[in-house]
Amino acid sequence: KFGRVHERAEGPAKILAIGTATPFHWVDQSSYPDYYFRVTNSDHLVDLKEKFRRICNRTMISKRHMFLTEEILQKNPNLCSHNEPSFDVRQDILVSEIPKLGKEAVLMAIDEWAQPKSKITHLVFCTRSGVDMPGADYQLIKLLGLSPSVQRVMMYQQGCFAGGTMLRLAKDLAENNKGARVLVVCAESSAIGFRGPSEDHPDNLIAQALFGDGAAALIIGSDPKMGLERPIFEIVTTAQTFVPNGDCHLALHLREMGLTFHCTKDVPPTIAKNVESCLIKAFEPLGISDWNSIFWILHPGGNAIVDQVESTLGLEPNKLQATRNILREYGNLSSACVLFILDEIRKKSGREGLKTSGDGLDLGVLLSFGPGLTIETVVLR
């Protein structure tokens, strides 16, 4: 008597548009150690500064975009301390800036989509910054002038794996609601975790050397309108798992001094060791076991992770080039990073006149991972 209210779509979910945005301000990685130790009044920690310089040199990052300028840091000195309470200051900045950054990426996506924004039916927003109620999803709806009846899902504090999570959720929403057009937004800022150095917490140096700011937005829907919408990728399958006891290797915690970062040297080999089982589960039903026969979007948690995944799986050097390019130009953008790589690989395919948006290949994989050593596996066509 009370059956399904919403009719299912006929076809699989497809990515119809991609937009990205970054803050205008950026830092050069080669000179960042001098800048970082100067603005945090830590130049007296000579040995720690040299250690940080070595870490920065190993990241293979060229530059990173950041909202925090020297002027902002001078006005808010607690942000430059390692342990002073600064959460309220971070909140005041990020509750406002995260939706604005997301808006810039959304406008780029809508411009490519070339359809009225009134056709957006759902919003899925993800960030690890600016936790608030009502959330960044609500603020973004107002900034864009979208209908208050847009169906919203707000996900805070997920971390680097969440780019894949957003695709998984959007696929379910698009395929189970005929005519749905799902706006996916990942907006991230390193301002939540920026803090001064400490000899007692070397993990913090890794975070300060890796993370950048950026937002990515996608429009996802099934059954694209012929002649009006141009699909870029099809989302074939999605899956999530985590490595048992992985939280002892990688975890982040909200504290009075901001978001703290805990990471062990076992993260790269542990991820590399567990990736292939995810690939087998995803691609065995499709008859694929040659990992060089697919295109790759791999989250660059750090250069060591990229190198070890490449080595463990025997990947050809060009397979992870898009990942390395984004890491070099932006650093680790947390949940937004794989979506930047997705954009990079389709643009490169277009520039080179390849037959598909995925490096000329039919199928590919998007792998994202993060806290708890959670792994998201997304098969794309």
Rank of each mutant, 00 (worst) to 15 (best):
Thr237Tyr: 09
Ile288Gly: 04
Thr264Ser: 07
Arg54Gly: 06
Thr264Asn: 13
Gln321Ser: 03
Lys273Met: 01
Pro317Glu: 07
Ile326Met: 15
Ser86Cys: 08
Pro148Leu: 03
Phe261Gln: 15
Leu373Asn: 15
Leu361Cys: 13
Thr260Glu: 11
Leu361Pro: 07
Gly135Arg: 06
Thr20Trp: 08
Asp111Gly: 08
Ile375Ser: 15
Ile375Leu: 09
Gly314Trp: 03
Ile98Gly: 06
Gln240Gly: 01
Ser31Tyr: 11
Thr270Lys: 09
Val267Gln: 13
Ile305Tyr: 07
Val46Trp: 02
Gln115Gly: 05
His253Gln: 14
Asn303Met: 08
Lys75Ile: 02
Glu310Asp: 04
Thr121Met: 09
Gly258Trp: 01
Met60Thr: 03
Leu279Ser: 04
Glu316Ile: 02
Pro85Ala: 15
Ile72Met: 08
Gly246Met: 04
Leu94Cys: 09
Cys278Asp: 11
Thr264Phe: 07
Leu380Cys: 13
Gly370Glu: 12
Leu315Ile: 07
Pro231Gly: 06
Ile297Tyr: 13
Ser311Ile: 02
Phe242Lys: 14
Ile120Trp: 03
His299Cys: 04
His249Pro: 11
Met257Ala: 14
Leu373Trp: 06
Pro371Trp: 01
Ile235Leu: 04
Asp362Lys: 00
Gly353Leu: 03
Ile110Tyr: 05
Asp88Cys: 11
Gly364Ile: 00
Pro12Asp: 07
Arg128Leu: 11
Thr312Val: 11
Thr22Val: 13
Gly135Trp: 07
Thr69Ala: 07
Leu140Ile: 11
Gly372Asp: 04
Ser349Gln: 09
Pro33Arg: 08
Cys263Phe: 08
Ala272Leu: 13
Leu327Thr: 04
Ile72Gln: 01
Val243Leu: 12
Pro285Gln: 08
Met60Asn: 00
Phe37Gly: 09
Leu339Val: 12
Phe37Ile: 14
His122Ile: 02
Glu10Lys: 08
Leu313Ser: 04
Glu376Thr: 01
Gly314Thr: 02
Tyr32Trp: 04
Phe233Ile: 03
Lys281Arg: 08
Lys63Leu: 05
Lys142Ile: 01
Leu373Gln: 15
Phe37Glu: 12
Glu329Ser: 03
Lys51Tyr: 12
Leu313Lys: 04
Leu342Ala: 08
Val5Ser: 08
Ala336Pro: 10
Asp307Ile: 01
His44Ala: 04
Ile271Lys: 10
Leu252Lys: 15
Leu298Trp: 12
Phe369Val: 13
Ile297Gly: 06
Ser129Leu: 15
Phe242Leu: 12
Ile326Pro: 05
Val89Ile: 13
Ile288Glu: 01
Thr20Val: 06
Leu143Asn: 09
Cys248Ala: 11
Ile297Asp: 03
Gly360Gln: 13
Cys126Gly: 09
Thr356His: 01
Ser368Ala: 12
Phe295Cys: 03
Gly287Trp: 09
Ser334Glu: 14
Glu310Val: 07
Glu234Ala: 03
Lys63Gly: 10
Ile294Leu: 10
Glu316Trp: 00
Phe233Val: 01
Leu320Ile: 12
Lys347Asn: 05
Ala114Trp: 00
Met257His: 06
Ala239Ser: 14
Glu229Ser: 00
Asn41Gly: 10
Ala13Ile: 06
Asp47Tyr: 04
Asn318Ile: 08
Cys263Ile: 06
Gly301Ile: 05
Thr377Arg: 06
Arg128Glu: 05
Met133Glu: 12
Val338Thr: 09
Glu84His: 11
Leu16Tyr: 01
Val89Trp: 06
Ile345Met: 10
Asn57Trp: 02
Leu298Thr: 00
Arg324Glu: 01
Ile61Lys: 15
Leu366Thr: 03
Lys51His: 01
Ile18Arg: 03
Phe242Thr: 15
Pro244Thr: 13
Thr377Gln: 15
Gln321Ala: 07
Ser42Lys: 11
Ile120Gly: 04
Arg328Gly: 07
Gly19Ser: 07
Glu71Asp: 07
Tyr36Phe: 03
Thr238Lys: 02
Gln115Asn: 08
Thr323Cys: 15
Val46Ser: 03
Gly331Arg: 12
Glu84Leu: 00
Val236Ile: 10
Leu354Gln: 12
Leu320Arg: 02
Val5Met: 13
His299Tyr: 07
Leu45Asn: 11
Ala17Asp: 06
Leu252Ile: 02
Gly102Arg: 13
Ile294Cys: 03
Ala136Val: 12
Asn274Asp: 13
Leu327Pro: 04
Leu327Trp: 08
Arg381Tyr: 04
Ile141Gly: 04
Val365Trp: 13
Asn245Val: 05
Lys355Gln: 04
Arg4Val: 15
Gln308Ala: 13
Arg38Trp: 04
Lys319Pro: 02
Leu254Met: 02
Glu71Trp: 07
Lys348Tyr: 00
Gly145Ser: 06
Val124Pro: 00
Arg346Ala: 07
Pro244Asn: 04
Ser86Tyr: 03
Ile93Gly: 10
Asn245Thr: 04
Leu366Trp: 02
Leu101Thr: 10
Lys51Gln: 12
Ala251Tyr: 00
Leu250Cys: 09
Leu144Lys: 01
Leu315Val: 06
Lys142Trp: 03
Gln29Lys: 13
Lys63Ile: 11
Asp266Pro: 12
Leu250Ala: 14
Asp290Ser: 07
Val306Gln: 13
Asn318Lys: 12
Asp343Arg: 02
Asn318Glu: 05
Pro77Arg: 05
Leu48Met: 01
Glu10Gly: 11
Gly358Ile: 05
Trp296Val: 10
Leu361Ala: 02
Gly372Gln: 13
Asp137Cys: 12
Asn332Lys: 10
Lys119Gly: 07
Asp343Thr: 02
Phe125Pro: 01
Ile15Thr: 08
Lys49Ile: 04
Leu366Gln: 10
His25Met: 04
Leu366Asp: 14
Leu228Val: 15
Leu250Asp: 15
Cys337Tyr: 05
Thr260Gly: 12
Gly314Ser: 05
Gly19Gln: 11
Thr40Leu: 06
Cys126Arg: 01
Ser277Arg: 09
Glu112Tyr: 05
Asn83Tyr: 11
Asn332Val: 10
His122Ser: 05
Cys337Met: 14
Leu254Asn: 10
Ala114Glu: 00
Ser334Lys: 15
Val106Ser: 14
Val309Ile: 09
Lys1Thr: 14
His262Ala: 12
Asn83Met: 13
Asn83Ser: 13
Lys103Val: 10
Lys100Ser: 11
Gly11Ser: 02
Asp92Phe: 02
Asp343Glu: 02
Ile341Val: 08
Glu112Ile: 05
Ile294Ser: 08
Asn325Val: 08
Thr312Gln: 05
Gly358Asn: 02
Leu79Val: 07
Gly360Ser: 07
Glu84Ala: 09
Thr20Gly: 06
Val236Phe: 12
Asp343His: 05
His44Tyr: 07
Thr260Ser: 14
Glu10His: 06
His299Trp: 09
Glu276Pro: 07
Ile294His: 03
Gly372Lys: 15
Ile235Cys: 02
Ile345Leu: 11
Lys14Ile: 10
His122Cys: 03
Leu367Gln: 14
His122Asn: 06
Val379Asp: 15
Leu228Glu: 09
Glu284Thr: 13
Asp343Val: 00
Phe52Gln: 08
Gly102Ala: 15
Asp34Glu: 10
Ser335Cys: 03
Arg8Asn: 00
Gly331Val: 03
Phe242Gln: 11
Pro23Asp: 03
Ala21Met: 03
Arg128Trp: 15
Val124Phe: 01
Asp343Phe: 01
Lys1Trp: 04
Thr22Asp: 05
Gly331Trp: 01
Pro99Arg: 10
Ser147Val: 01
Thr377Met: 02
Ile18Phe: 07
Ile280Met: 09
Asn78Val: 09
Leu342Ser: 12
Leu73Arg: 07
Glu10Thr: 11
Thr237Ser: 14
Phe24Arg: 13
His65Tyr: 06
Leu79Lys: 02
Ser357Met: 04
Leu68Gly: 06
Trp291Thr: 07
Glu376Ala: 00
Glu376Tyr: 00
Tyr36Ser: 06
Phe67Gly: 10
Ala282Pro: 02
Gly246Cys: 14
Leu361Lys: 14
Arg38Ile: 01
Arg328Asp: 01
Val89Ala: 12
Pro269Trp: 11
Glu112Met: 05
Gln115Lys: 05
Asp111Glu: 13
Gln91Glu: 07
Ile280Ala: 10
Phe125Met: 11
Leu320Tyr: 01
Asp290Asn: 04
His253Pro: 15
His65Asp: 07
Phe125Ile: 06
Pro317Gln: 01
Ala9Leu: 04
Ser349Pro: 04
Leu315His: 03
Val309Cys: 06
Gly11Val: 01
Leu367Met: 13
Cys126Tyr: 12
His65Pro: 08
Leu123Ser: 00
Ile110Cys: 05
His65Trp: 00
Leu143Lys: 07
Ala105Arg: 07
Gly302Ile: 07
Leu286Lys: 06
Glu234Met: 05
Leu313Glu: 03
Thr323Glu: 01
Glu256Ala: 09
Trp296Asp: 10
Leu342Thr: 04
